[in-house]
Design a protein around this nucleic acid. Sequence first.
DNA 1: AGCAATGCTTGATATAGATCAAAATATATC
DNA 2: GATATATTTTGATCTATATCAAGCATTGCT
Lengths: 222, 222
Amino acid sequence: MCLPLGLHAVDMTLLESVVKRKETYKRGQLLFRAGDRFDFIYAIRSGSVKTSVSTLDGRVQITGFHIAGELLGLSALASGQYSNEARALETTSVCRVEAERLDELAQKIPSLQYQMMKIMSGQIRQDEELMLLLGRRTAEERLAEYLLGLSMRFAARNYSPTQFRLTMSRGDIGNYLGIAEETVCRILTRFQNAGLIATKRRDVSLIDLRQLAAVARMAPAA
Amino acid sequence: MCLPLGLHAVDMTLLESVVKRKETYKRGQLLFRAGDRFDFIYAIRSGSVKTSVSTLDGRVQITGFHIAGELLGLSALASGQYSNEARALETTSVCRVEAERLDELAQKIPSLQYQMMKIMSGQIRQDEELMLLLGRRTAEERLAEYLLGLSMRFAARNYSPTQFRLTMSRGDIGNYLGIAEETVCRILTRFQNAGLIATKRRDVSLIDLRQLAAVARMAPAA
DNA sequence: AGCAATGCTTGATATAGATCAAAATATATC
DNA sequence: GATATATTTTGATCTATATCAAGCATTGCT
């Protein structure tokens, strides 16, 4: 099933009725753009997606990388328009829930709204973390934290937390972390020389999680 | 009334029953801290509040300044604990809604949950903007945008959009914008010399909104 | 298979803004 | 009302990271 919302089985069939199944996007394809009318909430089934916002003069800030089980489009609820754009990083399969039916549906399934609020609350918390990162951390800390964050998300989905493939480019990572592409490369090299990680292009192994956490100045990734 | 949620009159009386009225905080007092059990949603009646998150080693990032009509504590919903801390910048009066009664209440007033979702959705959007600011803008742009943002919020509340008092210190502003306190001062001086603003300590007048918007690289503040 | 396009890496140089230091002004305290 | 404390401002110097530049590796395309 598509939406990891912890609903009762009864509610599920109701929900199924508004979920349009299995849209697929190829690498580079847009799911939606900023300013588009709010049509759907998206849930990622497989693959990965980046979301971004931009200034009028064209500078872009990537605001998140999203993998299986995560929801997209929530910030459109307030205004009826998407505020960000979402683009597939690889072949990606999603479910979509029609926005219009969402109100109507929420009346019937109170727990749905509650779950969605929880998800949005979690999103706000995550955004606060990213602000802390962008405003207060050094480039090394950012990258170490980034790798550990990915690691934990993969772990939560029963993928290897120490070996994974980055679906985003160095440029995307740098943009997301507020540092230059070249700085990303240099620091990855530094980490590699220090024996913290091994990289080969987009494949990464985390070798010394404890020391990586020390660099990130976080608690060790339990 | 305290909560600007656009509810029906019928619902209002219900809501009143869970709203504890009129708590007041003095400058510097804490409303809640990160890690505290999630007790209340706060709505600001008057005054102003800063919210912040911190790293384990004590670095702080201010994530917002909040004025009358705004809600605090929403990000605690997901985990049952506040993720940030909130501190009064001046004498501040708030209403509090008990978190426990919120679930129960939401069942009775479907539109309440919907309104709260809209507010949270708006918060996510605002956070995205701040990320864009922290990740991609120069110090001058940040400060110009900051002043214009305040201006718009005051305008929306029928206060003067061109003359207001900053309730936060230069240090707070710098922290929020991800720049040093000294840089805030220098740039304010630069703006003043260029005839964009006038400052006297915490009192600010915006003189040339159009040019300020040009510096911020935003659309003119309609 | 071979070529083009894209993405990654490393090096050299430049700079925005941080940090350090200290004076000037305002606010709080007794 | 005087002294102490905190905030703001300005100046001098330093540094982390950006930018510019060029070569290398990989992937995709015909």
